[in-house]
Design a protein around this nucleic acid. Structure first.
Lengths: 195, 195
DNA sequence: CTCCTTTCTTAAACCAGCTTAAGTTTTTTG
DNA sequence: CAAAAAACTTAAGCTGGTTTAAGAAAGGAG
């Protein structure tokens, strides 16, 4: 029984403990070690993952081989390559653990059985994807309107603990800047504060 | 009765004509003239819109007052400021008609009544938002990995008719470049082709 | 059809952010 | 604990894309 998942679902739809116990049966618990890949670009994407503890990131390989992070998932977020998951296509993105992470995994087959048995879960996932979509649009908005420095300030201002948690290289690849430039920005911010 | 909407819904869930006729009653038909705003940044967002004919764009005002387009909706796409629509908050984006456009509008209240009466519509919207989310992630991917020139080539290569349909200024604000630079790129492409 | 407004083009000067390269620090592994 | 690998820093030089400014073309209103 996952308290996290129970609480998360219950935030969006009415849910009794007995039903939730049944719903849990559709899931598998899985541990992922830091830097281990849960999904690999080009392979099948077997499941949709709910983060119980830890942190995942989704990324792809640039033409020149550098990794570009497009989003993170921390506790209580869902993550998968949704298109590959739904259509059984090859994944366009890889998913990797940023730290040792515990996830609940559900396959497409089990997902469909679950939605068939508990139609209210359609409503839960509709709302989850509405939010994910809205978040992604805001990301586009910030990327478009802010300078790289401002993007850094915005992110580190809003998620200071998170910035501590992840390697700078990964942060840079998420912010869309080079690690060198990130280093420069941080230096500027440091000297400014100590003055 | 909208054939467009019927066909679109029927692509995702089983739907009989009689139910659809009932579902149509939750919607209002609306005409929007070119350049007219359907939603305005800072105001309440009254409805969710399905484009029957024409083209909408979502944008926001930059610090310096220029408009930044973050997405388009053509025939058979849904568009609204989903967060504002759901939570009754002020819209973070404006929605404007790029050409004279026909939409079907549904308010939050009617939406909830509809989802209560036809729970399968939850499944339809879940799938619609999964796709919208996936599309938005791909957008982020392209913005991050491609140069501005490549972004132009990619977009004009994939949607040539669409590029004809919209003013260049709006296209530039969608691609995240200045109209001046877009002009330069186009010139470069023209001379290359005529050689 | 004419005037006024908006959009589009051209070109030069400029700068935010990248590239390259070398050195330093931290982490991983045997 | 030592050695190797990976991550981070610093700094100089460079470039893709912006800014500014002015003119040309196209659209819309009367």
């Amino acid at each position: 029984m996952s308290e996290n998942l129970y609480n998360h679902i219950a935030k969006f739809i009415p849910l009794v403990r007995e039903d939730f116990a049944e719903i849990m049966l559709f899931f598998d618990s899985q541990s992922v070690k830091k830097k281990q890949n849960l999904v690999e670009e080009g392979n099948v994407c077997r499941a949709n993952y709910f983060v119980e503890k830890g942190c995942l990131r989704m990324f792809f390989l640039d033409v020149d081989g550098t990794e570009q992070t497009i989003q993170f998932a921390i506790e209580n977020w869902w993550m998968t390559d949704i298109e590959a998951f739904n259509k059984g296509k090859k994944a366009a993105f890889s998913i990797q653990a940023v730290e040792n992470t515990e996830v609940l995994a559900i396959t497409k087959y089990e997902m469909e059985r679950m939605l068939g048995t508990y139609p209210l879960m359609e409503s839960y996932f509709r709302q989850v994807y509405e939010r994910a979509y809205a978040a992604s649009l805001f990301r586009v908005k910030y990327i478009m309107r802010l300078s790289k420095e401002e993007i850094y300030d915005h992110f580190s201002g809003n998620f200071p603990e998170f910035v501590q948690r992840i390697p700078q290289k990964v942060l840079a690849s998420f912010l869309g800047i080079t690690p060198e430039y990130l280093s420069e920005i941080r230096k500027k911010r440091m000297t400014r504060k100590t003055k």
